[in-house]
Design a protein around this nucleic acid. Structure first.
Lengths: 225, 225
DNA sequence: GCACCTAGGATTGTCAACAATCCGCCTATC
DNA sequence: GATAGGCGGATTGTTGACAATCCTAGGTGC
């Protein structure tokens, strides 16, 4: 809203509803809207500078993505994710990223390994600077890049949605700083196994990576069994 | 539109946008709207008896699901699925249903096998009657039931979307009648392997089932490589 | 004859107002 | 004192109209 770099296409190529959806999605991802919080339409519309029409369209999109819960004549609420949801998100992520990894292994492994170097670099910088948010961003980008390298639009779309939910889980209790060096090492091992075409090793490490993430999150969760 | 069985809750519990989305989704699934066709808002709104507001909300939902393609100031078009899309849909389905199958194997196999008997019965009846549409419905229900038995909401939601795209692929050239007895046998083999807990066998049969479906569809497709 | 420009029509994008519904609180009654 | 009934405020759901944009057809100049 403040500084647009390219005023050539201020609002042209993307629909307003899509822009609004992205904005709210990011806000939910960052924890700006607490889980369970109600989102008033007039308030949001006024804050974003749009009318209720496009805003409602954006909301429908987020409801379809599973980020919001709509109660008729009650309002829209940010979905709250419990322990079961954490397990389910990572179950689905494991399934999708496993398939993506297999596709990458069958394709151009080297190019994918190179592409992964970008988020890995960001992860190293974030770890060195002790920036937890940047670390989470880099983690996010790593997995998005992995799935993007598969060349599958549907796996990519699914991952995009699941990663947002992952960030929602993390944002609920950001104070739980993950051990940065360990996290970085895990991702580098994934990159190594991918680059070297070690199929079984990659799949095992991927599954282990997911299991550890679930354990980390559930350990930091209040009412986890 | 013609005969509603339960007029007790005509529009109460579900939002209008959701109802409209379901209606259009079904129409796309059945091939009522040809791929690439433009959907005019005023025309659809008038035909469904709602205003353009809820209709646009429903459209945003379908766009998010990947069924429609929106071009700004141009209109909404039914997505056309090419050979690459067919392969991608089944790639994603294989990933999701594999994960679901593993979850079922780790849970209550017997109950899942019983649940699968319902769509299998419908499939037998459709095969005997030579009803291609009912056969496709039963096929659809089988895989939906398999994933539902996993107890994972996210795998379930992904499958719902992917199955709709599957039907879109099939609807494009309905005349390609699949060999009913063979299709039935394949699904019964899946059920058997699931019931008996034969993990490797089930996963192999599932992958083969998907591969055969892709081959069947691509063979009937006009411009397939 | 061909290319460019312009007017027309139609469609989408957006907005502000109206109507229906629900929640919380207050009051009256048992 | 507790509970049933009703009222007020707020929010969502829906509608119709207005404005911006794009494609197509026709005309004009070169």
């Amino acid at each position: 809203m403040s500084t647009e770099v390219s005023d050539l296409e201020p609002v042209s190529r993307r629909s307003t509803a899509e822009i609004v959806a992205d904005r709210i999605r990011t806000a939910i991802m960052r924890g700006t809207f607490a889980p369970g919080a109600q989102l008033g339409e007039v308030d949001l519309a006024g804050r974003l500078g749009v009318s209720r029409g496009p805003l409602r369209e954006a909301m429908q999109r987020l409801v379809a993505e599973g980020l919001l819960r709509s109660e008729r004549h009650r309002g829209l609420f940010v979905r709250e994710l419990g322990p079961d949801d954490v397990r389910d998100v990572y179950l689905a992520r494991t399934a999708v990223e496993r398939a993506a990894a297999l596709q990458v292994l069958a394709g151009d492994r080297a190019a994918a390994a190179v592409a992964l170097e970008i988020p890995l670099g960001a992860m190293r910088a974030a770890a060195a600077a002790g920036d937890a948010v940047a670390l989470a961003d880099a983690d996010h980008d790593f997995h998005a890049a992995l799935v993007a390298a598969s060349g599958s639009p549907r796996l990519r779309r699914m991952t995009d949605g699941l990663l947002v939910e992952t960030r929602m889980c993390l944002a609920a209790f950001q104070q739980t700083a993950p051990p940065a060096p360990e996290l970085l090492a895990e991702h580098e091992l994934l990159r190594d196994a991918l680059r070297d075409g070690r199929t079984e090793l990659l799949l095992d490490r991927l599954a282990a990576h997911m299991d550890e993430a679930v354990a980390r999150i559930l350990a930091a969760m209040p009412g986890a069994a």
